[in-house]
Design a protein around this nucleic acid. Sequence first.
DNA 1: AGATTCGCCTGAGAGC
DNA 2: TGCTCTCAGGCGAATC
Length: 272
Amino acid sequence: MPELPEVETVCRGIEPHVSAQRIAKVTVRDRRMRWPIPADLEQRLTGRRIEQVSRRAKYIVLLLDSGDRLLIHLGMSGRLRVLAPDVAAIRHDHLDMLLANDVLLRLNDPRRFGAVLLWDAGDDDHELLAHLGPEPFDPAFNGDYLFNRSRGRRGAVKNFVMDGQVVVGAGNIYASEALFRAGIRPGRAAGRVSRAEYAQLARHIREVLEAAIRQGGTTLRDFVGASGHAGYFQQDLSVYGRTLQPCRTCASPIKRLVIGQRSSFYCPTCQR
DNA sequence: AGATTCGCCTGAGAGC
DNA sequence: TGCTCTCAGGCGAATC
């Protein structure tokens, strides 16, 4: 499942192949995604040049010379890959962009939780990005910020940090890992976590995401090839998916708990 | 406003 | 081998 580090890895991976390239041909095979791929996508993209590749939360943002921005979200199962122009399409291939340098940028998404959207030139913001919280690497994201935002909130601290309006990029895996590193149980009420604990939590959210980006993500989304294999960060997971396995710090069995419909993992000894 | 639930999807893995 | 069942999960929308 692509989380922020995977999306960042994809952005860095495609950037040298697509930046400053003109889009020669656009093929949409299946418009059905989370929202339908816009009907005027082909017309708005064809002939345009890609000026910049960036990321906001888990959205890939391609800035075009028209001023429009193409937003791509990979959802749960999306893959964006750089291929040779003659690679045959397979099931669940939704979108092709053939670039002037003969690079084929192809989006495949079996579960269709992903999205392809246009952010119109001239619009200050896009509705889906307008209410997002800070990036975890933004200096504005720190312990005091989390502490202030969380006062009065009775929901679980794990849900709080996974809320994209609070901070982006702390998906299920990384939220669990950061809470472990900070020694905070995931089910605690967000409003009852101390300022000092939030300072640790903010630091660990940032660090765990940075470490994962350095290693190319937990689930490596292979953008220049066909095979997908586990990213190196997988082996660094302390609690996620390790139910009943011994804590690497204290050997207590890791517990699994469902919070807000999602699996959460924690060490009952190291986290309080 | 905050918290909770629902729904969208298909592939992987388990069980038989 | 092949079927059925369960689970996974980002995140917007609806509801409480």
